[in-house]
Design a protein around this nucleic acid. Structure first.
Lengths: 235, 235
DNA sequence: ACCTGAACACCGTTCAAGT
DNA sequence: ACCTGAACACCGTTCAAGT
């Protein structure tokens, strides 16, 4: 079960192979199943063997994050800044969606891996090249928050089973259970809102649409500030 | 050490007392120090005793979260919706700041405790009373994301030691270490931006300002959409 | 009837002993 | 010189044995 068919059983352990296996394990079994012991077993080695290639579990997680961030597309040159940022962020989003554990891992880490810093740096570069002041760019990065990296921590999360293999366990809870819908009438109302308008199947809401809605709200607001020559002194 | 001076050593265990102690422990020692065993020791009982009052650790965490959410101020009646929401969210923020572990706990939980649902419901109620359509209110809640609850997952977190007792360990890293400032010039530039403008001591940036900047950017954008009678069909 | 010590099945990580 | 079994100090939770 643990040994893969094609490879000779004694494929030498390498940092690369450890990272790929760790990511695959987290993707399919969930991040909570990623223990040094489980990972070692998956690789057919004794747990201690991993410590030859990674310092400890924290460093392993950092390296996994860096690999995911590395999947984000490079910026498209010669594009208007708003479109460039938009495309970049949507690419980040799809990378993070391929690895559902990554968003929370990034948040719980103290942050600041080289790959993340490189990505953020290039986003700032795009903002600056679009004519935004360093001052405004600074606040923009804060305002975007985790959305820069493609996730926004949806509060009522429709797809929270993050990290299950196979088809998503029950596509949607089919709106709210009636007893809590009664206790929280306004939530019930908006849960069923935008049914008629958008063409979403079932009662689920379109996460991608919500993400872009918020993203564009922010980008449009920022563009307006820039055009008005906003500085921190304004407020 | 574990027994408090004023109380008789046999203060009967109660859910209330367990929760208060758990929150205090997480506040002072950090969430990673909150184990059932540690908590029991703090209370002077055997770990198993806790299971008479809480089903398991997950339920304990949910109850702790609900208690923190309970600290959020009630909405001020008869206020214009934008101001009402703004005040509510800033109150949520200060509650979450008093308990630095809470934001991450909320995110990692599957979400949807009664207190959180009640809070979200009342925020939606305010939006609706301000004349926003259920459709727009829906998207607004998504756009706000975790900011509705007062946190935004700052990506470059200036105060990430969350959960240390005593004075904050070194107020600020004094800008970026020069070697990484060289590798990420645009980050370095915005890190030192808004120095002259705002009156922030040291090189830190004003988290509260950044939060309100983003909040107002969103609220202003939403107000404009509302005034224009925006619906999902627009896009 | 109530309480709890010991135990179970896990962690991440160390270290000395074996080849 | 290299590898690794056993061990350490933890987890959350169960359960049978003790009062």
């Amino acid at each position: 079960m643990a040994e893969q068919a094609g490879t000779p059983r004694r494929t030498p352990l390498s940092r690369e192979r450890i990272l790929r296996t760790a990511i695959a394990l987290a993707d399919t079994a969930g991040i909570e199943s990623l223990s040094m012991r489980n990972l070692a077993q998956e690789l057919g080695v004794v747990p201690m063997a991993l410590y030859k290639h990674v310092a400890n579990k924290d460093e392993l997680l950092d390296a996994m994050i860096d690999m995911v961030v590395g999947e984000i597309d490079a910026p498209i040159p010669d594009t208007e800044w708003k479109q460039a940022i938009r495309g970049r962020i949507l690419s980040a989003r799809s990378a993070l969606q391929r690895h559902p554990w990554a968003a929370l891992a990034i948040e719980s880490r103290n942050m600041a891996t080289p790959a993340i810093l490189g990505y953020l740096d290039s986003v700032v570069a795009t903002l600056r090249s679009g004519g935004l002041s360093a001052d405004l760019a600074h606040h923009v990065m804060h305002a975007m928050g985790s959305r820069v990296l493609g996730f926004s921590q949806e509060l009522f999360d429709t797809t929270r089973d993050a990290g299950r293999s196979g088809p998503n366990t029950a596509p949607q809870p089919a709106a709210l259970p009636p007893e809590i819908a009664a206790r929280f009438p306004h939530l019930a109302e908006i849960a069923t809102a935008s049914h008629d308008e958008t063409s979403v199947v079932g009662s689920g809401c379109d996460d991608q649409f919500e993400f872009e809605f918020a993203l564009d709200l922010l980008l449009d607001g920022i563009e307006r500030l820039q055009q008005r020559g906003w500085t921190s002194a304004h407020r």
